[in-house]
């Protein structure tokens, strides 16, 4: 980035003096970033919500993960487990929201830990939290690539159930690699114009909502009108208990919650994005007022 201010003098500078200089330069970097990051400042409340809603991707995740719910308890865990998970996850969301509102600063969760627990142990815990969070987002990213891979190959399999290609590792890897490259490549070029990313998020959010309506209506209309298809009775939809796991029922009630939990995590995207959307001056008010 900014040439002259960027750590010109060697990588591993010796300690005491350079710490100060480095901090100064880092701070300047942050200021510079405050300007370069103007892209994300174009996020309106609506596009922030669209981003968070589509990253959560609740109904889509439930759809992708249907087998887990169906074998681990069936309708009872899918629906009533979801109610329980929703209440608990809402508490988590509110707690994070409170922290985010008090400290809308870089690094989200890890930074909050550091600010709250200002001791050497706290710094270590914050570091571990940062790694766990980063690993979480990397693996979430990888799992979305894998989901898309499975679905693309699944579409092919629908037409050609005998096709052996879907099971071969290198075909899967090639598709996976293509999708991962698409994600990275799009992001590399998308910020050139400040409007692209928020608009893209708006479109994905709207599309995700529209698909929810389309899927629901198409399913209901098809089953309602087609010959030979019947709706399940409400006793199945709201009360069926299916356990194909071998665990006792008490355990299955809990393992069945996993599906609901999958669909309702990753709402910290907003906590992570604001740091980039705000100039570093936002650090000051909370500290200077103490």
């Amino acid at each position: 980035m900014s040439g002259p201010t960027f750590h010109g003098d060697g990588v591993m500078d010796s300690k005491p003096i350079d710490v100060g200089r480095q901090s100064y330069e880092d701070a300047r970097d942050m200021v510079a970033l405050g300007h370069t990051e103007e892209l994300t400042r174009k996020f309106s409340p609506w596009s922030m919500f669209a981003l968070c809603f589509s990253i959560l991707g609740t109904w889509g995740t439930f759809a992708q993960d249907l087998s887990s719910g169906l074998t681990n308890g069936g309708a009872i865990t899918i629906l009533w487990g979801l109610v329980l998970v929703f209440i608990c996850n809402l508490c988590v969301a509110l707690s994070l929201g409170e922290l985010c509102s008090a400290m809308p600063t870089a690094l989200g969760q890890a930074f909050w830990m550091h600010s709250l627990w200002h001791t050497p142990t706290g710094r270590f815990a914050s570091y571990i939290c940062a790694w766990v969070n980063v690993f979480g987002w990397w693996t979430l990213n990888a799992s979305l690539v894998a989901f898309a891979t499975n679905f693309l190959l699944g579409i092919k399999l629908m037409y050609d159930p005998e096709w052996a290609g879907a099971g071969t590792g290198w075909v899967e890897f090639l598709v996976y690699f293509g999708i991962a490259s698409l994600f990275t490549g799009f992001n590399l070029v998308a910020c050139r114009n400040d409007k692209i990313l928020p608009w893209f998020n708006n479109i994905v959010g709207i599309q995700f909502g529209a698909l929810f309506i389309i899927f629901s209506l198409v399913l209901l209309i098809c089953v309602g009108t087609k010959q030979g298809l019947e709706f399940q009775p409400p006793s199945f939809t709201f009360g069926a208990w299916i356990n194909e796991t071998g665990w006792p029922s008490g355990v299955v009630w809990f393992t069945g919650l996993v599906q609901a939990a999958y669909g309702l995590t990753a709402f910290d995207s907003v906590c992570i994005l604001p740091p980039n959307t705000q100039t570093p001056t936002n650090v000051s008010p909370s500290r200077s007022s103490t």
Partner: peptide, 24 residues
Amino acid sequence: LFTMNSLGQGISITTTGSRLTWSF
């Protein structure tokens, strides 16, 4: 349509992940 939408979500997740990586 569903898969296209998943690709869109994936791009948003990549954005968020990269910003977290960057801020760490």
